[in-house]
Design a protein around this nucleic acid. Sequence first.
DNA 1: TTATGTGAACGCATTCACAGCC
DNA 2: GGCTGTGAATGCGTTCACATAA
Lengths: 207, 207
Amino acid sequence: MKHIADSTVRRLSLYLRFLEEFQAKGLATISSTELAARGGTTSAQVRKDLSFFGSFGKRGLGYSVPELERRLRRILGLEREWRVIIIGMGKIGAALAGYAGFHQRGFRIVGLYDADPAKVGKRIDGHVVRAASDLAREAHKEGADIAVLTVPASAAQQAADAAVKAGVRALMNFAPVPLTLPANVALKNVNMAMELEGLAFALTNPG
Amino acid sequence: MKHIADSTVRRLSLYLRFLEEFQAKGLATISSTELAARGGTTSAQVRKDLSFFGSFGKRGLGYSVPELERRLRRILGLEREWRVIIIGMGKIGAALAGYAGFHQRGFRIVGLYDADPAKVGKRIDGHVVRAASDLAREAHKEGADIAVLTVPASAAQQAADAAVKAGVRALMNFAPVPLTLPANVALKNVNMAMELEGLAFALTNPG
DNA sequence: TTATGTGAACGCATTCACAGCC
DNA sequence: GGCTGTGAATGCGTTCACATAA
C-alpha cells in the first residue's frame, strides 16, 4: 500500500470519534462537509483521506455512518483486541493503567511492571504489579503487542529492549530520551513537558 | 516574525534537552551534525531551524553549548516562570500535578480544580483542590497563564471557557473533544487513546 | 442538484549544495 | 579544512476545481 502520512492517520481517528457521535444520534448518512466542520478541517481533506483506502461514499448523498465507521475501524486496526503492557508504575503509569479511554478502544491491559521491589506485588486497578526483571518472560507469555513506557529516562532504553525481546512490536514512550529500536518496531514519543513548551513558545511569540 | 512551524518548535525543545546533556558533560561546543545525530534529524535541518532566529554558530567550529542553550531558552520563552492550573483531578490530572518534568522546566502549578465536592479541599502534592465553580475568580487572582484540562469530555468546553475568563491564554486539552476558543488562545490537544490508535494502525499496515 | 473522487496546482517543510567565514 | 548560513531544488501534504455519479 501507498505510504500514509501520520497526519492522515490522526484525522482518521478523529473521524471515527465523530462517527460514533453521529451514530449515537441515529443519523444514517453524513457528508464530507459535516465531518470536516466537526473536525476543524476541510471537506476535500476528508475525501482525500478516505480515498487512500477506497471509495466509501455515494455521490450526491454522502457516507453511510455505520458503514464508514466499520471501514475506519478496519483501517485503523481496531477490529481486534490489542494487548498492552505498561512498564513503570510511577504516577503517570499508574494513572494510565486505569484510563478508561484505552479499554473503550479495544486496548486491553495485560500486565503492569516496575523495577522497584516495594511496588512489585501491589495491586493497581485490578492488576498485580510484576517485577521488571520478569518482563521478557511474562510479557511473551501474555502475548503483549504494545508497551507503554513510563519509566525514568535512565531506564527507558533497557525497558524498551526487554519489551522488544518479549515480542512487543509497538512502543509508546513517555520518557524524554530518544530510543534505538529495530526498524520493524513502531514508536510513538509522548512528552508532556515538550507540549507545554510549545504553549510557552506560542505565548512568547504571538501571531 | 516569520511564521514558525510546529515541527520546528518541537525540535527546538529537543535540541535544548540535548544541550543540557552536553552541558552536563562539560562540552564547550557542538556541531549541527552532533546535535542532529542525537535528535534523529539532519545537520541541515538543525541549521535551518536555528537560522529562523539568528546566527548563533561559528563557521568551522560549531555552536557554543552554553550560549545556544541560553538562546533556545529565550526563544522558547523559558526564561520566565509560567503559572499553570490543572482542571480535573481524576487519575491523569492528579498524576500531572506531581509530574516533576513540569517543575524542572519552569512551569509552576498554582492551582488544582475539580467539580466534585468530595475532592474539593483534599490535598494533592501539596496543593489544596479548589472548587471548579471558583475557577474564574481564583485563577485570575493567581495570574494563571496556562490551563491543563483533564476533565471528562462533557465538561471540557465549559472548563475551557472558565479558564479563558480567568485570563488563561493557553490550554493543554486531554479531553477527546474539539474546543472552541478565542483566536488569541493557544491550544494543544493531547489524546492518549489516539496515540495508541496510531500504533495499532502501524501494526496493522506494516511498511 | 448535490456531493463524491481525483488529477492538477499550490504552498510549505525538508534537503541539497555551496559560498562564506573561522 | 571544517562547519555554518542560506538560496535553490525537492518532496510531500493540502487545497482546488471539475468530471462523475446518484
